[in-house]
């Protein structure tokens, strides 16, 4: 493996990054995994695991020592469990640092994982939403500013630095048996609140499809710019929740919002800004990615949800 190209993956304590690492190792690429959180003891395949804050000097040591060919910045802090300052520090300052270090130490390909949440679920949204459209989420939920800035900054950076071919992915709701983000945990809850009187179309992308999209984007493409990842098909949110075993609890949206706001003070729960995604549509098109990679997601909505909650 001495001559194997090296991929540096941030967010390696998370399931998605570990799955991506596995797929890269299977392609003969050596993996260096970094996270600011506690590291797993092992990831089930040979990989160097290092703990480093993305916005501290230690992250530069990692780049200096390993000189990765590929940089996969999958370590976006996704929800409100971290305080605003810390999220800004990691998502905005940290991402900037990761990108600058990729340039400084000669990486050729970079992939930044953003999110479709930045489009915002809004009653005026048309369908589907393409990559070049405005990011509305901040108007309703300023707390999402760090995610919007991460994305915009990465896009600007990508066009400023042609030496590192940089691609930004905006996946829809990522779910799967190994994923433990806010949405996957929500689907597995014993009691699942639903919003009375609303039933927007939603999309889910299964971990397997997203991993495939990330690996192909990294290794098989030199495309630059931002790309949506939508998964296969769309489904009304109630239909989706009908597939999970938890007891449904229909509530008015104002009550859901208050409960989540109160809940977020004492425990890790669904970020309140996600409530709008249960009221208004935010259906994205990933035609651009499909055309660029000559690829299509394989797992439909029903199968994705069932596998996430462990129902055959």
């Amino acid at each position: 493996m001495a001559d194997a190209p090296i991929a540096l993956i941030t967010g390696i304590s998370g399931a998605l990054a570990q799955l991506v690492g596995k797929a890269l190792v299977d392609r003969g690429i050596a993996v260096v995994g970094v996270d600011y959180r506690h590291l797993p003891d092992a990831v089930g395949y040979p990989a160097v695991l290092l703990r480093a804050n993305y916005n501290k000097t230690k992250i530069e040591d990692v780049f200096r020592r390993h000189r990765p060919t590929y940089v996969l910045h999958l370590g976006r802090v996704g929800n409100l469990k971290e305080r605003m300052n810390k999220r800004f520090d990691l998502n905005v300052m940290g991402s900037r640092k990761v990108m600058d270090l990729a340039l400084k130490y000669g990486a050729r390909r970079m992939l930044v994982l953003s999110t479709f949440h930045i489009y915002g679920a809004h009653p005026h949204n048309h369908t589907p939403i393409y990559e070049d459209e405005p990011l509305r989420a901040g108007t309703a939920f300023p707390q999402i500013a760090d995610a919007i800035q991460l994305d915009s900054q990465a896009l600007t950076w990508a066009y400023q630095h042609d030496e590192v071919k940089t691609m930004i992915l905006r996946p829809t709701n990522v779910i799967g048996p190994d994923i433990s983000n806010a949405m996957s945990k929500f689907l597995r809850q014993k009691t699942v609140p639903t919003v009375i009187g609303f039933d927007p179309m939603v999309q889910f992308v299964h971990q397997t499809d997203l991993v495939e999209a990330i690996v192909r984007s990294t290794c098989d493409s030199q495309a630059v710019g931002v790309f949506n990842v939508a998964g296969r098909g769309t489904i009304p949110v109630r239909r989706a929740l009908d597939l999970v075993p938890g007891r449904k609890l229909p509530l008015p949206s104002s009550l859901v919002m208050s409960l989540l706001r109160a809940g977020s003070l004492v425990m890790r729960t669904l970020p309140p800004y996600l409530v709008n995604f249960f009221k208004y549509p935010c259906v994205i098109s990933d035609q651009k990615l499909r055309t660029t990679l000559s690829w299509e997601p394989a797992i439909g909505q029903t199968e994705a949800i069932r596998s996430t909650v462990g129902v055959a």
């Binding site: 039933d199 769309t234 259906v283 909505q301």
Partner: peptide, 10 residues
């Protein structure tokens, strides 16, 4: 409409 029974607009 495809097998899902819904188009993207609902």
């Amino acid at each position: 409409i495809g097998a899902s029974g819904y188009d993207p607009w609902g």
